[in-house]
Design a protein around this nucleic acid. Sequence first.
DNA 1: ATCCGAACCAATTCGCTAATGGTTAGCGGA
DNA 2: TCCGCTAACCATTAGCGAATTGGTTCGGAT
Lengths: 235, 235
Amino acid sequence: MPEPDGAAQETELSEVVGRLRHLIDAGRLPEDGRLPPERALAAEFCTGRRQVRRALDHLEAEGLIWRHQGKGTFAGQPPDPTTKMAAKIVAEVDPLGVMEARLCLEPSIAALCAERAQAEDVARLRALAARIKLPADAETAELWDGALHRTIARVAGNRILLTAFGLVDEVRHHPGWQAPRARARTADSARISDRQHAAIIDAIAAHDPVGAAAAMRLHLETLAAGLAQSLEDQG
Amino acid sequence: MPEPDGAAQETELSEVVGRLRHLIDAGRLPEDGRLPPERALAAEFCTGRRQVRRALDHLEAEGLIWRHQGKGTFAGQPPDPTTKMAAKIVAEVDPLGVMEARLCLEPSIAALCAERAQAEDVARLRALAARIKLPADAETAELWDGALHRTIARVAGNRILLTAFGLVDEVRHHPGWQAPRARARTADSARISDRQHAAIIDAIAAHDPVGAAAAMRLHLETLAAGLAQSLEDQG
DNA sequence: ATCCGAACCAATTCGCTAATGGTTAGCGGA
DNA sequence: TCCGCTAACCATTAGCGAATTGGTTCGGAT
């Protein structure tokens, strides 16, 4: 028999996988999401290191964890260079500084987008804008809002500006800054944002760079004002 | 007399500055551009560490060197993590794309700079502008030109924008793109750039954001036109 | 023949020391 | 009396070696 007791091994492996999943979900991991070493896990689960590695292979294939030789095993996604840069910047900048940077970048990006957008690009933008107003919860709306702005930057067709925008976006979405932005979001502000998004996209569709830049600037200034108000209320 | 021999000290300081400049320009530095420790420089120049530090202060204000406690003193620009990113971008972008990005970023940066520049900042900018027209060779002039634009970005006081600018600057200075820029530089274009630099700094000194942005935009458009011409001539 | 455990390899982190830029206290000259 | 300099000190970082950790291979047990 090529596999003496393959079924039993299968069940043991999936049990280890389950215990690891529980360990990750339980939130008992340190701040950086680091898992115990493989050897320690093997001892804790009263099994061999090999089984632990197999289980970790599964979890890694699922994208639930990432590993690096000499470094360790971590829950979540591996950090890419942009996030590292963003993390450094977050320490030295405040939400208003981010809005300032957006005000520098995004109007010009919108203008370029207006120059270059094809009909299908405009359709994509409209679809995204429509999605923003669907969800009730602020977090999902933020997600689609980010997607809209990012798509505008992508359509603008300048790789450098897209990277710069991505940097700002990364800083913007950094955990810890969600609270003031969530506070700043109300039903009223959402409605205003929707109208402003529509105005931006209209200008882009009309291939009107100046109008697109102006509409984007107005939108960002509105957001900045709301954010400033929120920060003022807070502290 | 409040200053015993202030003049003599001045001359000694500027001599140290000159020797340091020569040391940097001579290209006898190691690959990473590291300068000898301050103590060693003091010994070599037969002076005190204080004078060396003052001289280095000048060079740092000019953006020619950067220092970090415990790390050392280096010629050139402090390495952002942008370097790796820039290498990726270089492959997917052309010189005109860089100019496009600069046209998006730098006018707004100049406006912010105009809002926030102190008298000493303006003085630094004027000193840099004066240095651009001194050297005969294009490469050194480019160096000082870069230092001027970077200082404007630094004075603007927004860390994110400074990083974004650094990204563009890194791409811009990537080897292989020097040739068309060198071809685009003539005695005429240098004189025009000088005047435009002066106009930018005047607007900044006058705390005129709109004027600074307009002057910067004009300057970059002039550069872009020259670059486009150069590329066209090339083929 | 297959699979597991132990040993080994490579990359990283940690703790320490030396080196280096930044700062301050105290002295000497005008 | 005041200013500026030298020397010592502080904070941060590089360099190095030992320990840690994921990745791999080899020998043996079933």
